[in-house]
Computed example of a mutant assay.
Amino acid sequence: MAKFLLSLHVLASVLFIGPVAVAVSMFPRRAAAALGSGADQPVAAASVRLLHRITQVYALLGIAVPLLGIGVAQVMDVLGQSWLIASIVITALSAGSLLLFVVPAQQSVIDTLDAEAGTPAAHSRGDDRERAERGLKLLPMTAGVFNLLWAVVVVLMVIRPGSTTGA
């Protein structure tokens, strides 16, 4: 059972966290092009909307990763080990950075694009563009923090301090 759950956990992390990591990394550059003016602007705006959608959907699906991880830890009887507790804390920090910084900054860009395109559902405010550009300045850093935290979790999962696997 442990091998099956571990396989699901690893598969879910690759299929669900991987696309989020790529989307949040690509978003700032495409968003800058979408908010700019040029021939690439309409294509960049479509890309930004797609990347934001990928971030939202796969982040939601990514909830399966820690849930499966806790199941694996329980079956392997390692729930109290420090490397696992550290991984859980870092995973929570990563999720927090995504939910508190990355997604709102992305949404701000989408709202600005909608307002400038005259989308009926868009709430038009004069400071939307300034807020989007301000958030866009921090977005590469917050995306990097999100990805770095996930990389640390992966390293902890592979190294597993105190592991008896001989690695």
Rank of each mutant, 00 (worst) to 15 (best):
R129F: 00
P120R: 12
A86C: 00
W150E: 08
D127H: 10
L15V: 02
Q56I: 11
L93I: 09
F27T: 02
V102Y: 05
I63H: 10
L99H: 15
P120N: 07
Q106A: 01
M157Q: 07
H9P: 12
A92D: 05
D40S: 11
V158P: 06
V75A: 15
V89G: 01
H9I: 07
V24H: 08
R160I: 06
T91N: 08
S37Q: 14
P104V: 07
H123G: 04
A122I: 07
I159G: 00
A59L: 14
H52G: 12
G166Y: 03
L50H: 15
M141K: 10
F16N: 08
L79K: 12
R160T: 04
A23V: 06
D111G: 00
S47V: 08
A115N: 05
V72Y: 14
V65W: 12
S163I: 09
V152C: 04
R53N: 07
L138N: 07
P104K: 08
R53F: 06
V57D: 03
G62C: 05
W150I: 13
M157A: 03
V43D: 14
V48E: 03
Q56D: 13
R134E: 06
Q74R: 14
I63M: 14
D114V: 00
S25K: 04
V154K: 05
E116Y: 03
K137V: 12
T91L: 12
V43G: 13
E116D: 05
V75H: 13
T91G: 14
A143V: 00
G162N: 10
V158M: 11
V75P: 03
A143I: 02
M141C: 04
V14A: 12
G69S: 04
L6M: 10
L11K: 06
V65T: 11
V158N: 07
A32Y: 09
S25M: 09
A33I: 01
A39H: 13
V155Y: 14
I54V: 15
A59N: 12
A122E: 04
A33W: 06
L156A: 00
A39Q: 13
G18K: 02
Q41D: 06
A64F: 06
A45Y: 08
F101G: 03
I110V: 15
G135W: 05
D111R: 01
E133F: 04
K137N: 01
H52V: 04
L139D: 01
L61W: 06
A31I: 07
P140G: 02
L100A: 15
P161W: 15
V153P: 06
A46Y: 07
G126Q: 15
L35D: 05
G166D: 05
V152H: 06
R125V: 01
A33M: 11
K3A: 14
Q81Y: 07
L139G: 01
Q106G: 00
G18A: 08
S82R: 10
R125P: 00
D128T: 01
I70K: 09
A121L: 02
I159N: 06
L113V: 04
V155P: 00
L148T: 10
S97G: 09
G62Q: 09
I85M: 10
V48H: 11
